[in-house]
Design a protein around this nucleic acid. Structure first.
Length: 451
DNA sequence: GTCCCTTTGAAGTAG
DNA sequence: CTACTTCAAAGGGAC
């Protein structure tokens, strides 16, 4: 795919997207929701023609899907997306303002990262070289918005990779009154707590040292359990999403209301933490995880327990208390938690916008919603898309830091093979439903247009 | 209960 | 290197 600006060598991946954006062509101006809707309507018109001609049904592609096997953090994300929606009465496109969350306003004074205002110097030496962002700055850990590439915060940007034009400082720097990152809802996965002043009890700053039994200041990692760090890197990795982890130990990745759903066990869990979560973890987590579990043992949301996947209904059942009831070692693959892929820019965008689109359209079918989202995605301005690309990049970076050995390949084959004999451009199998979607879309888009 | 659909993007595989 | 495949989210629909 052609790239607008030659790529710039940035790993942001935003470059890629600009392509599609350019492909869309004409729409370079700031896109309003109405414009988007109009475009959708236009598309529908042409689509109706295109779709009708290809209504042959060939079920060629039966794609297996992951079912909600990892609801823990997804729901957390949704929670915030929902919260965002409530706060935002206006449309996302109408207003660039992304209301934030109060708890993000309050720096976590107990967090060493903040207390000293900088990250441990060793951070860069610990992080995998390929993940290191030479200039990945402490500012991230100081509640700076990762996407706010304002001139004054040059350190925020990866110095080694010139900022692409579309990702440059042009990114709207909306310093919201409440210092909330616009994209907070995208990656603030906690679905559990939302009250600024009441940190979860299990995240209480006062933690007993497992060795001494003396209350101590919790390690930053313990306060930010959503990001299990790799052994040896705990507390030293420059968290790419540090800005999300500041408050109250509110992790980006949530702890499900019912507790830790997946059996990924605590490794070097301290006494107080382990007492809270131990019962939910399986025994095989005694040894340091190859992919860097956080010391708290709280798994990254991307981790999906195979057990959960296979037995969705029994997430909190006693069977989960594997620690006390030793289970026969499962197969190798079963042992390993299912670490999901980090979300890409579009996925992040979808997560944020889905609820809004659904509300607008009174449509719930994801397939139809996704079609709309896909079009809206293309109608986004560069700056808007850049936000998501940047966010996605950080997600990937974080993911790779958390799971150094993880590869997307690991998840291959976990789903049933889908028959994809047909070529990308020929999608006969979907036309049947597509027809339906496009019958619905005009109404959907009309509603959207009214907004 | 499971899989499909649909979208884009990242990353993997195959040739 | 290119082309293709898989998976990530989502939830109603189909079976």
């Amino acid at each position: 795919m052609p790239q607008l600006n030659g790529g710039g060598g940035d790993d942001l991946g935003a470059n890629d997207e600009m392509i599609s954006f350019k492909d869309e062509g004409e729409q370079e101006e700031k896109i309003s929701e109405n414009v988007s809707a109009e475009r959708d309507l236009d598309d529908v018109k042409s689509s109706l023609v295109n779709e009708s001609e290809s209504s042959s049904d060939s079920e060629a592609e039966r794609r297996p899907q992951t079912r909600p096997d990892t609801e823990s953090y997804e729901k957390a994300r949704d929670y915030f997306s929902e919260a965002l929606r409530r706060q935002q009465d206006g449309g996302f496109f109408k207003s660039p303002h992304y209301p934030g969350y109060p708890f993000l306003m309050i720096p976590d004074l107990t967090n060493p990262y903040l207390s000293n205002g900088s990250l441990s110097p060793s951070a860069r030496t610990v992080s995998p070289p390929h993940l290191l962002q030479p200039s990945f700055p402490p500012p991230y850990l100081q509640m700076k918005w990762p996407l706010l590439d304002v001139p004054g915060s040059a350190g925020l940007k990866d110095s080694r990779s010139p900022t692409p034009g579309h990702l440059s400082n042009k990114v709207p720097v909306v310093q919201h009154a409440h210092h909330v990152h616009p994209l907070t809802p995208l990656i603030t996965y906690s679905n559990e707590h939302f009250s600024p002043g009441t940190p979860p009890s299990h995240l209480s700053p006062e933690i007993l040292d497992p060795k001494t039994g003396i209350p101590r200041t919790p390690h930053p990692s313990e306060l930010s359990p959503y990001y299990p760090l790799s052994p040896g890197a705990v507390g030293s990795i420059a968290h790419p999403l540090g800005w999300l982890m500041q408050q109250q130990g509110q992790p980006m990745y949530s702890i499900p209301p019912g507790g830790f759903r997946h059996p990924y066990p605590a490794l070097a869990m301290n006494a107080s933490m382990s007492s809270l979560v131990s019962s939910r973890f399986s025994p095989h987590m005694v040894t340091p995880p190859p992919h860097g579990l956080h010391q708290t043992g709280i798994p990254h949301p991307a981790i999906v327990s195979p057990a959960i996947k296979q037995e969705p209904s029994g997430d909190m059942s006693p069977s989960m208390h594997a620690r006390k009831s030793p289970v026969p070692p499962k197969k190798e693959e079963d042992k390993r938690p299912h670490i999901k892929k980090p979300l890409n820019a579009f996925m992040l965008y979808m997560k944020e916008m889905r609820a809004k689109v659904v509300a607008e359209c009174t449509l719930k079918e994801s397939a139809a919603i996704n079609q709309i989202l896909g079009r809206r995605w293309h109608s986004l301005s560069r700056e808007e898309q850049a936000k998501y690309y940047e966010l996605a990049r950080k997600e990937r970076q974080l993911h790779s830091q958390l799971y150094p050995g993880w590869s997307a390949r690991d998840n291959y084959g976990k789903r049933k093979k889908r028959k994809r004999d047909n070529k990308p451009d020929s999608k006969p199998e979907g036309e049947r439903k597509k027809l339906f979607y496009f019958q619905v879309r005009p109404f959907t888009l009309f509603i959207s247009f009214l907004h």
